[in-house]
Computed example of a mutant assay.
Amino acid sequence: MDNTLLAGGLGAIVGVILALTGAGGGSLAVPLLVFGLRLPMQQAAPVALVAVGLASGLGAVLGLRDGLVRYRAAALIGLTGMALAPLGVWLAQHLPTAPLMLMFSVVMGQSAWRMWRASRSDAAPTPAGEEPQLPQERRPCRINPNEGRLTWTRPCARALAGIGMLSGLLSGLLGVGGGFVIVPALTRHTDISPRGIAATSLAVIALVSMGGITAAAGHGTFPWSVAAPFGLGAASALLLGRQVAHRLAGRRLQQIFALLCAGVTLTMAAKALLSWASAAPTHGLM
């Protein structure tokens, strides 16, 4: 099959998954590119950010319309993440493929476990999940009840900047949006509502994804011939999938997706270990 058509088809799969499961579904973009188009991790990661960035950008626009995005916090986290994303891309270019795949499989396995726990919870799952929270008085970022805005302090700025640094580094390194870092961190360090956290996280992911894509393009390793149809397929399927998502989404779908992610996690880990073992030097008996 022509690579352009295949890339568009794989992008459409990612778009449908994103529409049904949320931004976290973009974690399947990297495995699809690695196994479907046989791209190395160093190229698959930034291409995956195209789909992740498009989905997150759409969600952020809807969140802004509904007044849910904490745009000043999102700007600080996002800009810090954009500054660190090039470092992640640089590290990806200088690390072997096997350890990169192992790191990605760990991240994906954690996401699968969190989604499975949320789907099994008796309470309706929220974007914040079951992440531990600091006591109200110890959270560095708190909303002023009189103004409805975050009260900006040095500890708050440091916490948000730290979230951005970690999410940007991982986005550039592994091609993930960073929601698995941003959402728990905002839940722990702020008193923003779960819906506000989800919307703010999407805005940050869109910015950080843009930083990772730009950095990869600057390195000259960004395969535009794959990224363009992949992104177009993902965006088209995402918009179409949103029309029926409310009818199909639910706990059973979450469980199926979590099991799918777990299977892909094991496959990528096995592939990485086999690659690592085959590359290891062998010494004959003397």
Rank of each mutant, 00 (worst) to 15 (best):
residue 208 V to L: 05
residue 132 P to N: 03
residue 119 S to E: 06
residue 185 A to N: 09
residue 164 G to L: 06
residue 218 G to F: 04
residue 166 L to K: 09
residue 229 P to G: 07
residue 162 G to V: 09
residue 189 H to D: 11
residue 196 G to L: 06
residue 113 W to D: 01
residue 194 P to V: 01
residue 132 P to M: 09
residue 129 G to A: 07
residue 200 T to Y: 12
residue 216 A to C: 02
residue 200 T to P: 10
residue 179 G to C: 07
residue 207 L to T: 12
residue 140 P to M: 10
residue 221 T to K: 04
residue 106 V to C: 14
residue 168 G to R: 03
residue 187 T to L: 01
residue 128 A to F: 06
residue 112 A to L: 03
residue 209 S to K: 05
residue 191 D to I: 01
residue 100 L to E: 07
residue 213 I to E: 02
residue 213 I to N: 12
residue 158 R to G: 11
residue 189 H to G: 00
residue 104 F to G: 05
residue 137 E to Q: 13
residue 229 P to R: 09
residue 164 G to C: 11
residue 172 G to K: 08
residue 184 P to T: 04
residue 130 E to K: 04
residue 125 P to V: 01
residue 96 P to C: 08
residue 225 S to R: 13
residue 210 M to I: 14
residue 202 L to S: 14
residue 196 G to H: 01
residue 220 G to F: 10
residue 155 P to M: 11
residue 152 W to D: 09
residue 130 E to R: 07
residue 179 G to M: 08
residue 127 P to R: 00
residue 179 G to Q: 03
residue 204 V to L: 13
residue 176 V to T: 04
residue 118 A to E: 02
residue 177 G to N: 12
residue 110 Q to K: 06
residue 198 A to D: 05
residue 178 G to R: 05
residue 108 M to D: 00
residue 119 S to N: 06
residue 111 S to D: 00
residue 212 G to I: 04
residue 170 L to M: 14
residue 161 A to W: 00
residue 217 A to V: 07
residue 138 R to V: 02
residue 210 M to L: 15
residue 182 I to W: 04
residue 147 E to W: 01
residue 228 A to S: 08
residue 228 A to Y: 09
residue 203 A to K: 09
residue 180 F to Y: 03
residue 218 G to S: 02
residue 129 G to L: 05
residue 140 P to T: 09
residue 207 L to P: 10
residue 151 T to Y: 01
residue 122 D to C: 03
residue 154 R to Q: 12
residue 96 P to T: 07
residue 166 L to S: 13
residue 229 P to K: 11
residue 192 I to P: 07
residue 176 V to P: 04
residue 158 R to E: 12
residue 108 M to P: 03
residue 214 T to K: 02
residue 215 A to F: 11
residue 160 L to S: 11
residue 193 S to I: 03
residue 145 P to G: 11
residue 119 S to L: 05
residue 200 T to R: 07
residue 100 L to Y: 03
residue 102 L to N: 02
residue 225 S to V: 12
residue 121 S to C: 08
residue 123 A to P: 00
residue 189 H to L: 15
residue 200 T to L: 12
residue 136 Q to E: 14
residue 156 C to A: 14
residue 215 A to I: 07
residue 170 L to A: 11
residue 195 R to V: 10
residue 137 E to K: 02
residue 217 A to M: 13
residue 178 G to W: 01
residue 192 I to M: 15
residue 158 R to W: 15
residue 112 A to P: 01
residue 184 P to S: 05
residue 180 F to W: 02
residue 194 P to I: 08
residue 206 A to K: 08
residue 163 I to S: 01
residue 189 H to E: 11
residue 145 P to V: 04
